[in-house]
Design a protein around this nucleic acid. Structure first.
Length: 803
RNA sequence: GCCGAAGUGGUGGAAUGGCAGACGCGAAGGACUCAAAAUCCUUUAUGGGCAACCAUGUGUGGGUUCAAGUCCCACCUUCGGCACCA
């Protein structure tokens, strides 16, 4: 009888929905396990290959953990605010809210048709007023603790989307969403003071179990560096600071370079004799994006600030000062000391402007190229031409010079971080309104808690305005309000929050999704604790992960959450490529719709097929060829019903069965779903050789199969009227059953295989050696030779080294 | 340029330093069939040989080791990430 997946899968899915089979009860006595998969953005085109493999993989983990007796929380929701919906709304005239509802319903239907065991009772949506009420409330906590502030900043501006972008969103100098080159624009923005958490975000990584490469990417983004602040003076008496990680090169300074935006440049306008040239250079630099300034322009540019010179802090000599756009205003102090002999960028600049060079660290050929810290650190290089510091090693000099500077109040040791504050404003419609009111008398006032949420007004037009203000700014009924403090006339903030806001705390809401008093109760958070397993895409490894950790750490500091880090482990699914191995994209027309396979083969086959394509965590091409063999496997397992006999596990079946239990259990734990399926195939191949299968043997196979193909496993279990549940009591094995009495070992002479032979597994090393020497081929190879060494590797080989 | 990951048959991919290619796909041959599909059986890394067998083989070149796909060094290629970070 063929397996009718259409009817059977529907039957079980309906049952799960009606009975809330996979609802996780908070407070249950069983040990908890929290599996989190990144919630999708509900686009109009439905689930894609970026969603389904991870949901299936984590479903397998969840189902297995439940069978092992855990109280598993495996929730899903929707990260629904976002530009595509808004743009679709503008194009079609439909309301973003309606579009979102429709898309979410479509996603839910698709996810349910794959048989993912989500707890649908906990389904959330970031656009739900009951959700973003708390997103807004959490923002107010940042504000109340001085971590949200408004500042006029040169922000990345997309002239097409008419939206400010965070540094992270304008990767490569183009708008992440539309690809338009990003320009600079000054704008008042809400900022979150993420830089205040640099060190905590760095330290906290030690309290997690993330993959090491994920930790590395977090560390790189935070970008801690130890160095020295050097206090310097200009001939005008003005002081400035520079940051350096190479204070040992201080005696090699031949000029200083300021960022074009450096405050002193404007302040000393009147003292600069070539101001026209300088102004011209600044204007050009402002036109360039950070991208162009820092990468496209390989050749160094700059202008000397004539009329100004700096005084070397130690030698007190006069040193020229430049502005150059290779110096960034927002890193370090916006000015650098230039040592052309020991920094490649300074070297290029000095060559171009014909500036002097002083070698201060020996060992390189500084006439040809800069001898940089990567070249000299750790090589015991000594200082030269460095006055009282000459002769010290670099390591000694770092210490001595810093001490000297500190004693003479010329500088101090410090730590800087690359990570900047987070631009938290967007001038759009489809986002959480920032819950702030500006009163002419009281200044910025928070919206009182009782008035939350500040809801988005129901309007007909969402177009961004040409002046860069939010669309909300044109809606008078939204803007005009009264000041909560003085009752006078006031105006609402019209910026909305970035897409990242809702996703920065959603894992907390899952723990207590219907709470209307708090964002989540302390009891629920204490019960569920850290997310045990967090699966997501590689593209979110730095940004989203840092944002969520930042929020969480702040919440911990103000006593809102009971533990320091949100996620215990973070794993990453491999990128799915098109069938030809190229990148999948709509523009190339090579996308694959995973739902097509659910229709053709059913959920169970499609689940197996997607997991069988290759290593879960590696990048790999989509392969249609994986569906057929998985369909075959299920059909075979289904057909075993025709050769069942009531009976226990036979002794001679135990080995193969135990091996499969071991492999499948371990492979699910280590995310090796492809080899877990191989193991099931191997067991099926073995079952094919048996004349009949005992019911207890079959039940083990069904239990192992169940996380991968739940519908069919449940159906067979029910049809056969087996006792208990296929979803409980995960099979275990006795390690003794994996020990065989004999095993084939390889016998080598000088590491070349000369024989394969069955040996007793209980034999001692000497017995193995003695027996090996009796084998004809071995004797032949040993003839007239002297054995100098014998290597025995348990259960593997015997190797005779001869002369 | 820097950082990270990877490179294995015709193909997707397996291999705690210990028999390279598990499990599949594809292909070839066979069984069943009037025929086909489905299913089942056999073969399938490459070169040589009728064969037993021999030689070669995990991107390239070195090295460590009794033994290297795996460890070390250098390089090449591909894919990700970062962007003059002082």
């Amino acid at each position: 009888m063929d397996y009718n997946f259409k009817a059977i899968e529907k039957k079980w899915q309906d049952k799960w929905e009606k009975e809330k089979t996979y609802h996780a009860v908070t407070g249950d006595k069983k040990p908890k396990y929290y599996v989190l998969v990144e919630f999708p953005y509900p686009s109009g085109s439905g689930l894609h290959v970026g969603h389904t493999p991870s949901q299936i993989a984590m479903d397998i983990v969840s189902r297995k953990k439940r069978a092992q007796g855990y109280n598993v929380l495996y929730p899903i929701g929707f990260d629904s605010f976002g530009l595509p919906t808004e743009q679709y709304a503008i194009k079609t005239g439909a309301k973003p809210k309606d579009i979102t509802e429709k898309n979410e319903a479509y996603f839910k239907k698709q996810i349910k048709s794959i048989g993912i065991s989500f707890d649908w009772d906990r389904c959330i949506s970031t656009t739900d007023e009951n959700y973003y009420k708390w997103t807004q409330w959490l923002f107010l906590q940042f504000y109340n603790h001085g971590l949200a502030y408004k500042e006029k900043a040169n922000i990345n501006w997309c002239p097409n989307c008419k939206i400010g972008l965070s540094n992270e969103e304008s990767e490569g100098g183009v708008c992440e969403r539309c690809g338009t080159p990003v320009i600079q624009k000054a704008k008042e923005q809400w900022m979150l003071k993420m830089s205040a958490y640099s060190e905590k975000l760095l330290q906290g990584l030690d309290k997690t179990n993330y993959w090491e490469n994920i930790k590395t990417s977090q560390r790189n983004w935070i970008g801690k560096s130890e160095g020295t602040i050097l206090k310097c003076q200009l001939n005008t008496g003005d002081t400035f600071e520079v940051f350096t990680t190479c204070i040992e090169t201080i005696m090699g300074i031949t000029y200083f370079v300021f960022a074009p935006e450096h405050k002193l440049v404007q302040k000393l306008k009147n003292k600069i004799t070539n101001w026209d040239d300088v102004q011209n250079y600044i204007d050009n630099a402002n036109k360039k994006t950070e991208f162009e300034r820092t990468q496209l322009v390989k050749e160094k540019t700059g202008v000397q600030l004539k009329g100004l010179y700096a005084i070397h802090p130690i030698t007190k000599e006069q040193v020229p000062v430049f502005i150059g756009d290779y110096v960034l205003a927002n890193y370090g102090s916006g000015a650098v000391m230039a040592v052309p002999t020991h920094d490649a960028r300074d070297f290029d600049f000095a060559k171009k402007f014909n500036l002097p060079m002083i070698e201060v660290i020996s060992g390189g050929n500084v006439k040809e190229k800069a001898f940089e810290k990567a070249d000299y650190l750790g090589h015991d290089c000594k200082l030269v031409n460095s006055s009282i510091f000459t002769g010290l090693t670099v390591e000694q000099a770092k210490k001595k010079i810093t001490e000297y500077l500190e004693q003479n109040n010329l500088g101090y040791h410090t730590t800087t971080y690359k990570m900047r504050d987070w631009v938290f404003s967007r001038q759009r419609y489809w986002g959480e309104p920032v819950p702030m009111i500006h009163c002419p008398k009281c200044g910025w006032v928070t919206v009182p808690e009782k008035d939350l949420p500040v809801t988005l007004p129901d309007v007909d037009h969402y177009e961004p305005t040409d002046d860069g203000e939010s669309p909300l700014s044109k809606i008078d009924s939204f803007v005009n309000t009264t000041c909560p403090k003085c009752g006078g006339h006031a105006k609402r903030e019209t910026d909305v929050m970035p897409n990242w806001a809702g996703s920065s705390w959603y894992y907390l809401r899952y723990m207590d999704p219907h709470n209307d008093k708090e964002f989540a109760s302390m009891d629920a958070m204490k019960y569920w604790g850290m997310v045990d397993l967090y699966n997501g895409g590689g593209e979110h490894v730095t940004r989203h992960l840092l944002y969520a950790r930042f929020w969480h750490k702040f919440f911990y500091d103000i006593g809102l959450v009971p533990y320091e880090e949100p996620f215990w482990s973070r794993i990453q699914q491999g990128l799915i490529l098109a069938t030809d191995g190229s990148k999948m994209s709509k523009s190339r027309g090579n996308t694959v719709d995973p739902m097509k396979y659910v229709d053709t083969y059913g959920a169970d086959v499609s689940r197996l097929g997607q997991m069988f394509m290759g290593d879960y965590t590696s990048t790999k091409p989509w392969s249609d060829d994986c569906m057929k063999p998985c369909q075959k496997l299920l059909q075979r397992i289904w057909n075993y019903q025709d050769k069942l006999k009531v009976g226990n596990i036979r002794d001679d079946v135990k080995y193969n069965l135990s091996l499969c239990i071991k492999n499948v259990t371990e492979d699910i734990d280590t995310l090796k779903f492809n080899t877990a399926i191989s193991s099931l195939m191997i067991l099926a191949n073995y079952f094919d050789t048996l004349e009949f299968i005992n019911t207890e043997e079959y039940k083990v196979l069904l239990k192992l199969l169940c996380p991968f193909a739940p519908h069919m496993s449940l159906e067979i279990w029910e049809q056969q009227k087996f006792n208990g549940s296929v979803e409980q009591d995960w099979p275990t094995y006795n390690p003794n059953d994996l020990v065989q009495s004999t095993i084939e070992l390889v016998v080598q002479v000088n590491s070349k295989i000369v024989a394969r032979h069955m040996f007793s597994t209980s034999a001692s090393e000497q017995e193995l050696i003695d027996e090996a020497k009796t084998i004809a081929n071995v004797q032949k190879a040993l003839e007239n030779k002297t054995i100098v060494k014998t290597i025995v590797v348990k259960n593997r080989l015997i190797n005779f080294i001869v002369k």
